[in-house]
Simulated assay, not measured.
Amino acid sequence: MTIRVAIAGPRGKMGKEAVHTVMKAENMELVAVLDHREIASNLVDYQEFPEQYDVRVYTNLNTLIEEMKPEVFVDLTTPKAVYAHTKTLLQYKVRPVIGTTGFTDEQLEEVTQLARENETGAIIAPNFAVGAVLMMKFAAEAAKYMPDVEIIELHHDQKLDAPSGTGVKTAQLIAANRPAHKQGHPDEHETIPGSRGGDIDGMRIHSVRLQGLVAHQEVLFGGEGQMLTIRHDSYNRQSFMSGVKLCIEKVVTLDTLVYGLENLL
């Protein structure tokens, strides 16, 4: 079976990689892309893509869905846009694969309920890299035995949200295996506000944003006389594409929303 796929944000770094991934996949057909700017009506007219990429470009999501009837829609754009896109897709019973982080708990609950009501599969993955998912699973397991933990996530300087979705997801998985408690000295005082990072159930998350980075995270567990470090590094965006491909293949078998790639492995 060939899966009809559409992609949002084809000129973005992640979107561009996703276009190449779907075009190369034997079991997928890229039927359309969604761009927020009207540049050209076909990908062949974009300088980023080769002349054999004969794919329609739309600037209106509803028109794209009605005319091209995709089964799966991959959205790797901005948190503000992807929330509205996800609701529209589910109302049309098009299956979203979302790689953008930044959903609030309320938004996540809303789209989960919408997917359930429409019996339409959806996947929201804070990180598509399989290694990053394993890092999160290993960290959750380690927290059973070493409950004092801090997370350092490092990304490129154009990332909009902090902490990252991966950092938040890691903290949530750890929190399920770790009793909430304040870490550090009880009389600890920040002479510069924010120095100790964000606080989730007493564990700290630190966000680094610098040129030259892609996506990196380390989880530090401290114990008496020892430290355990679990780290993952994505050196390029190709590292996320095996996860994108897996999600496209899996979402067509779902009738509800799945949050996190770890639930598909």
Score class of each variant (00 low, 15 high):
N118H: 11
G167K: 06
Y145D: 14
A162L: 04
V111A: 00
V133C: 08
A142I: 04
V149N: 04
V133A: 09
P193Q: 14
Q113W: 05
E110C: 07
A175P: 10
T112F: 00
E141D: 02
D187A: 13
I98A: 06
S164F: 13
G121A: 00
D161E: 05
R178W: 06
F103Q: 11
N118Q: 01
T166C: 07
T166M: 09
I151A: 00
P126D: 07
K144D: 12
D161W: 05
I124S: 07
G165F: 05
D157A: 03
L154G: 07
E188T: 13
A139D: 10
N127I: 08
L108R: 10
Q107C: 04
Q183I: 13
V97P: 01
A122Y: 02
H185D: 09
Y145F: 13
E110I: 11
Q107D: 06
P179I: 12
Q113I: 02
Q183M: 08
D148A: 15
N118C: 02
G121N: 01
K144N: 11
Q183H: 06
H181I: 14
E109N: 13
I124P: 15
K93Y: 08
K159M: 00
R95L: 01
Y92H: 03
A122K: 00
K159V: 01
E109R: 15
A140R: 12
F103R: 06
V97C: 02
G131M: 11
N118K: 10
A176C: 11
A143Q: 04
P179Q: 04
R178A: 12
T104P: 15
E117M: 08
T104F: 11
L173H: 06
V111W: 00
K93P: 00
F128I: 02
A162H: 03
I174K: 09
E141H: 15
K169A: 10
H156D: 08
K137I: 12
G165M: 03
E110R: 02
I174N: 10
T112H: 03
A162I: 02
E110Q: 10
D148I: 15
A162D: 04
A142Y: 09
S164E: 12
H155E: 09
